[in-house]
């Protein structure tokens, strides 16, 4: 028997969830988006060309679904910062409190980026797509991926730099953070 595409989709689920969480803050709503994405992908699976990347194709479906059906609902959703911090702090008891807080700050800073920057950031830096693959997933030119990505990361550096009052400014936070 050949391999079922469903099993490949299951293997992608953690990554689909990560991208969904970049688009939708509420955890349940993000999982709804993942589920809707899987359903739409499986209905349209004959439009996926075997041999091309299933992940980029599914990220594209997810973002289009979000634009069509989820975006409006999300803008009304309350932002739950407390749960965010708690979840990170609780998930890794082995991390220092400081690095847990740094992660919480990073998440908050990412959430404050405009969606178009946030999507590129997550596809490249978290999902580890190449610039080309991210461009395909978002249906934009590679040059646009690069300019959005650079702006997103400059904004992130600036936001995270401001969260700690160190005399040497953002540089110390950014280059000195690694233990």
């Amino acid at each position: 028997m050949g391999t079922d595409v469903r099993h490949q989709i299951i293997a992608l689920l953690p990554r689909l969830r990560a991208f969904a969480r970049a688009l939708v803050r509420d955890r349940e709503a993000a999982d709804d988006l993942v589920q809707a994405t899987c359903e739409r992908a499986l209905r349209a699976i004959d439009r996926w060309e075997a041999g091309t990347r299933l992940d980029s194709w599914m990220f594209r479906i997810m973002r289009n679904l979000w634009i069509d059906e989820f975006r409006k609902a999300q803008s009304a959703a309350p932002v739950d910062e407390g749960a965010d911090v708690e979840q990170i702090a609780g998930a890794h008891g082995d991390r220092t409190v400081e690095s847990n807080l740094m992660l919480a700050r990073t998440r908050r800073a990412i959430a404050e980026l405009p969606e178009e920057q946030r999507s590129v950031l997550v596809l490249v830096c978290v999902e580890e797509l190449s610039y080309r693959e991210a461009a395909d997933a978002l249906e934009i030119p590679v040059g646009t991926v690069m300019s959005r990505l650079a702006r997103a990361r400059e904004a992130l550096s600036a936001m995270l730099g401001e969260t700690r009052a160190k005399p040497s400014g953002s540089r110390a936070v950014l280059s000195g953070e690694r233990p």
Partner: peptide, 11 residues
């Protein structure tokens, strides 16, 4: 940092 911030979701 972005990767680490989403590490929990991935795991």
């Amino acid at each position: 940092l972005a990767r680490e911030a989403f590490g929990d979701v991935l795991a």
